[in-house]
Design a protein around this nucleic acid. Structure first.
Length: 506
RNA sequence: GAGCCAUUAGCUCAGUCGGUAGAGCACCUGACUUUUAAUCAGGGUGUCGCAGGUUCGAAUCCUGCAUGGCUCACCA
């Protein structure tokens, strides 16, 4: 049936060994041309998707389907192929899933049936026919006509085990999406999570905005930026590490509720929880504070879980989690006292704090002051123990240069982070709107930078100027979207929720 | 950036003590008109990640390199 004319003229000694899968596909491509068929076809009028057909045919009997013919045209990729001589079964996959098709010699005629037999797994075809059910009850399209829409020149991975090689999966995600149904499911859910987030924020009067990703100053977070260069202006630029400072400028400008879902870039290590570019949602609401942000956060995530999972009881890495609001709220200092017995409310100076750190085996850097040490106690002694959703509030002022100080204890700020399974999911505060205090905080950050912390904030003069015009008291919130997607899809690695995670070039 | 592990056919994986490379799927040839991990008969298609070294002989032992994974560090 197959004429391997491509081999003619090849070295005779490798005439057998050269018949690998790739050259077999090329030979079939030539065969289609020889038959006068364009193997990379044009548009195809699709009347049904596989799920439509499955759903509509499901309640119908074969008798009904015979008397009321259900004629369909659908298109997709051939995923399996079972020839039986004068009849052939195949499964075709479209965006919804798979459906079986059936081609019969006496229906298609000799010429067309031989063409059907020339098809390979992986080829994209359009099929036209009527729906019936096989003896085993599987809904199947009985093909009357078909069209080759794209010849596949590479074999797909095995149908049974799928594609497991993670390097191949990430580098060639399209193959992963074709053969691993759970992968498609995950990315569909990712899209639905973001849709749900937008829907709930719109419903609360938030305006979606877009701010620059190219910044002259990397601000809004403590992180090393990517550096780049603009040729026409001969200007050094950085890719944004946060959305914060531009969004707060918009609050100054009177856009009282804004949010952005966008990519940020941090020039740091890669791990199962970190990709150099990732997606943040940040929102700012005038006249609110960090307590309002807690309520907003727990309600938002609860609603998203209900939208995409249908429940607030989820499982992540075999750990049962309850996302039903309200969530636990705990002061950072109280949590440290619970875990270690050390009460930082009663400690006031850096020297005592350093002594306590040595006593409890908390590792510090030389430049650390009181607030940094409190934070290290939390990160090293508490963070990993927070399994169920917990708002940890009251971060020290030294590590929170953009948050308002607590009115009763200015060593701490009105800030919280959300922890689930020992990981941070959200960061929020009552935004600092005092320009004089903000300038001092920036100066303190510059001091830290001089002491060797290259992730300390830089001075942003224009941002301080914006505050000088007057920013209303504002609640701000940032959520790591990728981590939220990991949580709600039970994926262990951030690479499993990014379509194209960063890898070294091949 | 550090430690540990992995890399064998298109894919998923075996490969014992160092002795000519192996299975399933896919693929190729043939049979088969409701199969479905279709079945039956036949066929192995390979730079054992790369480069060195040890050895009569290396997929296997040693060194270096590359890529990936996990853990740690940094961070969200």
């Amino acid at each position: 049936m197959l004429i391997r004319d491509h081999e003619k003229g090849a070295n005779s000694e490798e005439s057998e060994s050269s018949v690998d899968v790739l050259s077999a596909r090329r030979a079939k491509l030539n065969e289609w041309y020889r038959l006068g068929v364009e193997p990379f076809g044009a548009r195809y009028e699709v009347t049904h998707r596989s799920a439509d057909i499955q759903r509509k045919a499901e309640p119908l009997s074969n008798e009904t389907l015979e008397t009321h013919k259900m004629n369909v045209k659908m298109a997709g990729r051939i995923m399996s192929f079972r020839g039986h001589g004068k009849a052939t079964f195949a499964h075709i996959m479209d965006m919804d899933g798979m459906i079986q098709v059936y081609a019969k010699l006496d229906q298609l005629g000799e010429g067309l049936y031989r063409q059907f037999e020339l098809l390979d797994i992986g080829d994209l075809i359009g099929v036209e026919g009527y729906v019936f059910k096989t003896r085993r009850g599987e809904t199947t399209i009985h093909i009357e006509r078909f069209t080759l829409l794209a010849k596949s020149l590479r074999p797909l991975p095995e149908k049974w085990h799928g594609l497991r090689d993670v390097e191949m999966r990430y580098r060639h995600r399209y193959v992963d999406l074709i053969v691993n149904p759970g992968v498609r499911e995950t990315f569909v859910t990712r899209s639905r999570i973001i849709q749900s987030m937008r829907r709930h924020l719109e419903a609360q009067g938030f305006l979606e905005v877009e701010t620059p990703t190219l910044h002259t100053v990397a601000g809004g977070a403590a992180a090393k930026p990517f550096r780049t260069h603009h040729h026409a202006l001969d200007m050094e630029l950085v890719l944004r590490i946060a959305l914060e400072l531009h969004l707060k400028r918009l609050i100054v400008g009177g856009l009282e509720r804004v949010y952005e879902i966008g990519r940020v870039y941090r020039n740091e290590g890669i791990s199962t929880r970190h990709n150099p570019e990732f997606t943040m949602m940040e929102l700012y609401a005038a006249y609110m504070d960090f307590q309002d942000m807690m309520r907003l956060t727990e309600e938002l995530i609860e609603q998203i879980a209900l939208d995409v999972r249908g429940t607030t009881e989820i499982e992540y890495n075999e750990q049962a989690l309850q996302l039903k609001a309200p969530w636990r709220r705990a002061h950072m200092v109280d949590l440290i006292r619970e875990a270690t017995g050390v009460d930082f409310f009663a400690v006031n100076d850096t020297e005592t704090a350093k002594h306590l750190a040595r006593e409890h085996g908390v590792h510090l850097q030389a430049m650390y002051e009181y607030g940094h040490i409190v934070n290290e106690f939390f990160e090293q002694k508490v963070e990993a123990t927070l399994v169920q959703p917990t708002f940890v509030y009251g971060h020290p002022v030294e590590i929170s240069p953009l948050a308002k100080k607590n009115a009763d204890d200015p060593r701490f700020t009105d800030r919280f982070e959300l922890f689930i399974m020992g990981r941070e999911y959200a960061n929020a505060f009552s935004e600092l709107n005092d320009p004089i205090d903000q300038r001092e905080r920036f100066l303190a950050q510059l001091e830290e930078r001089n002491k060797g912390n290259d992730e300390a904030h830089e001075m942003d003069e224009d941002f301080v100027m914006a505050l000088e015009y007057g920013m209303p008291p504002t609640g701000g919130l940032g959520i790591g979207v990728d981590r939220l997607v990991m949580l709600l899809t039970d994926q262990p690695s951030i690479r499993d929720v990014l379509l194209f995670p960063l890898l070294r070039p091949e």
